[in-house]
Computed example of a mutant assay.
Amino acid sequence: MKKAVSVNLAAIFVLLAGFSASVWALTDQQRAEMEERIKPAGQVCLEGDSSCGSASASSDGVGKSGEEIYSTYCLACHTTGAGGAPKIGDKAAWADRMSKGIGEVYANAINGINGMPPKGTCMSCSDGEIEATVDYIIEN
């Protein structure tokens, strides 16, 4: 019995050694591809932390347009009406909301309302960019 156990342990050791050697034998390209697959999806930036840079401005220093923000963050709900979102182009649905004034519509977009999260999940967007996005949706 003792001999069988030592043979089994030896076999396990050989398998583990072979496996661990194969992990260390990655090429630089394989290692880079693996690092790309497991890298974090984003980073957390706290308000007032200037070390994160400005996610709301593009590389040329100009903010994102209402159309860009709509296409990235708003399109899914405001095209389909998901969660009761007023559809882009639905004049009756938007007229009801506009009856409370554009300031109220801006506030709802910035702070969230019903199923819509604040800023429609575009937390890197400035309030002005969200207002431009609302204007884009209303104009279309």
Rank of each mutant, 00 (worst) to 15 (best):
W94T: 03
E35S: 01
N140A: 11
F19I: 06
V14S: 13
Y73L: 03
D28M: 15
N140T: 06
L26V: 13
G101K: 07
K3E: 15
A109Y: 05
E67G: 08
D49P: 02
M116K: 07
Q30F: 10
G18L: 03
V5N: 09
V23A: 09
K119N: 08
R31A: 14
V7L: 09
M1I: 15
K64Q: 07
M116G: 07
Q29V: 15
P40D: 02
I137P: 07
K2R: 11
I69W: 08
N111Q: 09
P86R: 04
G18R: 06
R37F: 00
M98C: 02
A21D: 05
S6H: 04
C45G: 04
A109W: 02
G61S: 11
D49N: 11
A41F: 04
L16D: 11
A82I: 13
A109Q: 11
C52Y: 01
H78A: 05
A25P: 01
S99K: 12
S6E: 13
V23P: 03
Y136K: 12
G53I: 07
A4E: 08
C45M: 03
G112V: 06
G63R: 02
P118Q: 11
G81H: 12
M34P: 01
A85M: 08
V62G: 03
N8S: 09
E131Y: 03
R31N: 15
L26N: 14
G83L: 04
G84C: 09
V62Y: 04
I130F: 01
A57W: 00
S54H: 04
E131S: 07
E104S: 07
F13K: 09
G53H: 02
G83D: 10
A57F: 00
M116N: 08
I38F: 15
A57N: 06
E47R: 14
P117L: 10
S65D: 04
C122I: 02
V5I: 14
L75Y: 09
E47N: 13
L16A: 10
K119P: 06
L16K: 03
A32E: 12
C45P: 00
A57P: 00
K100E: 14
A21W: 08
V23R: 11
I113P: 06
